[in-house]
Design a protein around this nucleic acid. Structure first.
Length: 788
DNA sequence: CGCCGGATTCTTTTT
DNA sequence: GAATCCGGCG
């Protein structure tokens, strides 16, 4: 399996070139001149600069079909790389549709990671531990971030480092970063070595050695190892260079250094590489993506053809104009001018709210209204609408709200199936059975369910195993023989070891299918029972997931095969029943499009994210701006941006200003919607009554912000109720000083309470119903002022 | 060893 | 407000 042989190493070529060549080429007719150029410039390096919604996937897939159709390559000689499984699947489907037949024969169309897993499994034994003959084996396991962290914690602890000051999580980040740059321990530049208390390089080295000893790799290794193999084994590299006759890369702006090197190495021979990207959509800088890669393409591949795709087929001109106006704030762009010949549509809609809950409420109602068809809009089905948020914690407000009003929704990119605790536990059991030297798996399940084997007992096992130089399972057996463990723990451990050995023998048993065996393992180990006895509300769902896992096994020949492939099918698309609104992060939305898009939470600090600005300054803001650009350009017909004046952060209410990106929206293409509560301006708008909804909105800081005021001025309309006199965004100290500790007050949101402390403009108030909160003085009034 | 309550920290974004 | 960590107790 691990030996390399060109004749059999590559899987299934299923389409013959002759059959292909006989086909007519109607697929070229549907392309515009730019796309056609991108497709028909077939040999040599091509850089496709494709703006959002310009049909780059179409161009890319057509290009693949054209390569096959002209007999330039067999399906298994095309290397087509994407970043997500979803994109890979879509590309496969579209190629299949264009060809009019399914294409099982494109084994090298996939994500960087899935392709590198295949490559690495072939050559695993070339990766070894320095100064020993231990090497990786082709059945290595792929660690997820959880395992990775667990391993690092052990190393950090062993090195006697204060976990408080230098959390292992931080080290994981540093190592990740280095792997993204393709820096092996010995290649980390001196200037970087000061990371993590100066110990990062040493720990990185230990970590890599430990991984290989465990026959494991982490995500970063997949690329890193393959790149090192290419760099050190020229014969292997050359074979792959010959084999992959054409290389296509999607989302090139998101490639990190390791991926870039990988591509440059593979394309180094024939240089038949076609990269597609959009510098304006580079949103993965934090994970090592280098926009520089795209800017540098022409230098790396002299004579490259650069094709620009600028005709947008997705969005209305208003949406396009808004997106262009925002992204124009960035420096150093490659510069594309998107255009469309679509006629006018709805302007981008902007709306401010009092707080996050109301924002969720309004969006819920608006979605229901849009289902029916509202104002001048056509009816939209739930599938046509999406809510795109900056950070996943923003999703909860919508989930809560939608659950109460019974609006069906689906969360995309939530915790993945194979990342759930119960699934990972079950897989750890399987791993222990199929490879008894899998220490990480054993650690995970040795005391799950509880077997009375706590830290102490586990330490003893570790020590015994290390003394004898054997895997943990073997160490545990020895420990038991020596009688080093007593009581309940010893008995339970013996049962577990017996079980593992028995199940191991059963893997070879013809009478027991692997699906049955999986069920047996989970039942006899007590794992199923553990969840059956569990009274928490999640337990039934977890049991359900376990059933699904066992069912998924049916698609594989045996447990081993399943475990080897499972790391690649990390995404699950099970949520397809019925119409639902999609909720996802902006990152997850890249590459998707929806007729109607809601972009909530456009407040400074949230979006652009404070952290991004703090850590990366202007570069951070620019990446956030690209994210805004991605968000707006997901919309085809209706794009609704909103912000809230108050939001819960860490359980505390905080007020915030509208995002700076709102200032960057072009006035001519934006319609400012009237916030709820301003309809008709009724609601006891008697001057000065602080609990009118008008006042609420006014107090939300919304109207005080520069961005909002500008929007109002531009839109040439005023809110029905004027904000009260405090139009200055400066903190109103007078208001604060007018309150004293012990005073009874009323707050719009929390009701009555007593002031416990005064800090500048902030009051600490013990509310009767809502508990103790810090609130801005301006938002409370004396309890007696309230007329009910 | 495992459970409980209290204190503390924490939230970008992900293959 | 949630997850995690810590110390004390059965």
């Amino acid at each position: 399996m691990s030996s390399f042989d060109e004749s059999d190493a590559f899987e299934g070529a299923s389409l013959s070139a002759r059959a292909m060549a006989a086909r007519p080429v109607p697929y070229l007719d549907g392309l515009n001149p730019e796309q056609r150029l991108a497709v028909e410039t077939m040999d040599g390096p091509v850089l496709m600069l494709a703006g959002a919604g310009t049909g780059k996937t179409k161009a890319l897939t057509t290009r693949i079909v054209h390569l096959l159709n002209t007999g330039r390559a067999q399906p298994n000689e095309v290397l087509a790389v994407t970043f997500t499984n979803k994109a890979a699947r879509e590309m496969k489907n579209r190629v299949g549709a264009l060809l009019g037949q399914s294409i099982e024969g494109m084994p090298w169309l996939g994500t960087f990671h899935s392709i590198c897993v295949k490559l690495l499994r072939r050559h695993a034994e070339l990766i070894g531990v320095e100064g020993s003959d231990v090497t990786l084996k082709s059945n290595f396991t792929i660690l997820d971030t959880d395992d990775q962290l667990r391993l690092l914690k052990q190393l950090v602890q062993a090195a006697g480092i204060d976990d408080k000051r230098w959390p292992a999580r931080q080290l994981a980040g540093v190592i990740d970063h280095w792997k993204n740059r393709a820096w092996t321990p010995s290649r980390v530049p001196a200037g970087e070595a000061g990371a993590y208390n100066g110990k990062a390089v040493a720990l990185y080295k230990q970590y890599q050695r430990r991984l290989i000893e465990l026959n494991a790799v982490d995500f970063g290794d997949l690329l890193l190892h393959v790149v090192s193999i290419f760099q050190t084994h020229d014969d292997i590299l050359q074979r792959y260079q010959r084999w992959f006759r054409y290389i296509l890369v999607d989302e090139y702006q998101d490639t990190n250094v390791a991926q870039y090197l990988w591509l440059r190495l593979l394309a180094g021979g024939h240089r038949n590489i076609c990269c597609v990207g959009d510098d304006d959509q580079s949103i993965y800088g934090w994970r090592g993506a280098e926009v520089g890669n795209i800017l540098r393409f022409e230098k790396d591949f002299p004579g490259a053809h650069v094709v620009r795709l600028e005709q947008n087929y997705r969005s209305t001109p208003h949406i396009l104009a808004a997106a262009s106006s925002v992204i124009a704030g960035n420096q150093g762009r490659l510069g594309k001018e998107l255009w469309t010949d679509v006629e006018e549509g709805e302007k981008v809609r902007l709306i401010g709210h009092w707080d996050g809950d109301e924002e969720a409420r309004w969006i819920g109602e608006e979605i229901e209204a849009m289902q029916r068809g509202t104002r001048n809009l056509r009816p939209y089905s739930l599938d046509e609408m999406a809510i795109l948020v900056r950070a996943s914690h923003q999703m909860r407000a919508f989930e809560d709200r939608f659950l109460t009003i019974g609006l069906p929704y689906r969360v995309i990119g939530g915790p993945r199936f194979y990342e759930r605790m119960e699934i990972r536990d079950a897989m750890a059991y399987f791993r222990c059975v199929t490879s008894p030297s899998d220490d990480l798996a054993f650690e995970r399940i040795v005391n799950t369910p509880k077997r009375g084997l706590g830290d102490k007992a586990q330490q003893k096992i570790q020590v015994t195993a290390r003394e004898h130089g054997v895997p943990l399972i073997e160490g545990a057996r020895i420990l038991l023989e020596q009688g080093g463990l007593g009581g309940k723990g010893a008995k339970e451990l013996a049962t577990l070891l017996d079980g593992l050995a028995r199940w191991g023998r059963m893997t070879g048993d013809k009478d027991v299918s692997h699906v049955e065996l999986a069920g047996i393992i989970l039942d006899e180990s007590g794992y199923t029972g553990m969840w059956q006895d569990d009274k928490t509300p999640e337990a039934p769902g977890r049991l359900e997931n376990l059933k699904e896992l066992v069912k998924a096994l049916e698609n594989f020949e045996n447990l081993t095969g399943f475990l080897e492939h499972v790391s690649l099918i990390m995404d699950n698309e099970s949520d397809n029943e019925g119409e639902k609104v999609s909720i996802m992060t902006l990152h997850a939305a890249k590459g998707l499009e929806f007729p109607a898009v809601f972009l909530p939470g456009w407040e400074d600090g949230l979006f652009p994210s404070q952290r991004s600005m703090d850590e990366s300054g202007l570069k951070g803001v620019e990446e956030e701006r690209r994210l805004a650009y991605v968000g707006i350009t997901r919309a085809e017909e209706v794009c609704t941006i909103s912000f809230a004046g108050n939001r819960r952060v860490f359980g505390q209410w905080q007020s915030s200003l509208p995002s700076r990106f709102i200032d960057e929206l072009p006035e001519a293409h934006v319609e400012v919607l009237t916030p709820p509560g301003l309809y008709g301006g009724g609601y006891g708008a008697a001057a000065g009554v602080p609990n009118s909804i008008d006042a609420k909105v006014a107090e939300a800081n919304v109207y005080n912000s520069p961005g909002w005021k500008r929007m109002q001025a531009r839109a040439g309309q005023r809110p029905t109720a004027q904000p009260r006199e405090s139009t200055s965004p400066v903190i109103d100290m007078a208001a604060a000083s007018s309150h004293v500790v012990g005073e009874r007050v009323f707050h719009q949101k929390f009701g009555y309470g007593e002031i416990m402390g005064v800090e500048g403009d902030k009051l600490e108030v013990a509310f009767d119903k809502a508990g103790t909160k810090k609130v801005v003085a301006r938002f409370v009034s004396g309890a007696d002022d309230v007329p009910f």
